[in-house]
Design a protein around this nucleic acid. Structure first.
Lengths: 209, 209
DNA sequence: GATACTTTGTGAAATTTTTGCCAAGCAGAT
DNA sequence: ATCTGCTTGGCAAAAATTTCACAAAGTATC
């Protein structure tokens, strides 16, 4: 149904549509036209229609889009109706912050375990979960059907850990380490390079009063 | 010197160049051609040359690019040689994680203060800084020449806080709240929507064995 | 049920981004 | 000092993305 060759530019916009539709739902709004959504989101109505049409016709002439239906459909496209089991590798500040992030559960992303190589961190409890040693990584992944790993470790360790994760069948890596991971074609990496983002902000601040 | 109409697509790639050049520097490599860098980074050599040429000719025929020089130049383009004073608004897990992130200091981003609306957080020490009440926000910004605010608060509070920040002259907002901020044209927002990123990973995992 | 209005889906145009290509020019060897 | 080979800078082509524009098809009203 969902075809394969959707550009990442389009995919990147889907979560934002999903977010705005969620807001509209909360406000009890039942229908919306691409023109209204366009005003709200500050993108062209044409782009909205074009984006959605990549996945099928969700609207109706003369009516617009049903908010609930479109919300559900985009959620489905994004795979939010699937269950994902995560582990967090690296129980530092960022790893703990993500572990405590409740909203991920609501979207079907369930954190099942935390790992850290630091002996002092072993057994520390984060959100009812003990921090585990790296030696337990492989067994834990297999026993708990983990499909996504969150990498919140220094770049020096990232490649080696990524290889171990891939070795035991991890399919998705949410990478917060400041390094590019080279992975086989059947593994997906989504990078969150915070420094890069901050540098971008810095650039955009350059020529400002 | 740096012209105004550089596309954000190009800007987004600069931090990655900067990162790779940093690695090359660490390895003691003095010069590199666009072709070699192309192999390393998995982008076309043509794109590298095109990107860099937006800001001037940093290379030399028959030689390539001097690693140190190019690193410095990109750092300069990104404004990394300027000093930025930050505050973090929202001293939850994520805010604290960012406060403890040492690398930002090395790039000229100095965290000067932390704020939180929760009375229980007042005075808690994070990286030698006391968490301050929101009532001190305006005075603190003015007295410490703060130009960037990091927003790590729930979306419900984000718009109001952003307005206060803008009101006292904040120029850049690094926004981690799951909401779009509407700001005047002389204020720059860089969004880090973690949920969006995770949803993108989810999408890309859909049709995988 | 007919009419007027609204709004989608979509092909085509416009724009932006990326890639290909090569003359110009520097480096390094002799 | 000259020659050979390498590599950039920049123009042109190609590809991708975004916007335009409108027929088709529905809604709402009378």
């Amino acid at each position: 149904m969902d075809s394969k060759d959707i550009s990442q530019a389009v995919v990147s916009r889907l979560p934002r549509y999903h977010r705005f539709l969620s807001e509209l739902k909360d406000q009890g709004i039942e229908r919306i036209s691409s023109a209204e959504l366009s005003d709200l989101m500050h993108v062209t109505a044409s782009q909205i229609r074009q984006d959605l049409n990549n996945f099928g016709g969700f609207g109706q002439q003369g009516y617009g889009y049903n908010v609930d239906y479109l919300y559900e459909e985009i959620g489905h496209i994004l795979g939010l109706d699937m269950r994902h089991n995560l582990i967090i590798v690296g129980a530092g500040n960022l790893g703990q912050a993500l572990a405590n992030y409740v909203n991920f559960d609501r979207r079907g992303f369930h954190t099942k375990g935390l790992f850290d190589s630091d002996p002092h961190m072993q057994g520390v409890i984060v959100r009812n979960m003990p921090v585990r040693p790296m030696s337990e990584l492989e067994d834990f992944i297999r026993e708990n059907s983990i499909d996504i790993a969150v990498l919140t470790i220094p770049k020096e360790a990232a490649i080696e850990v990524a290889d171990r994760l891939i070795g035991c069948g991890i399919k998705g890596i949410w990478n917060f380490a400041h390094i590019d991971l080279d992975v086989p074609p059947n593994v997906r990496v989504e990078n969150v390079h915070l420094s890069d983002s901050l540098m971008k902000l810095s650039y955009n601040l350059r020529d400002l009063g």
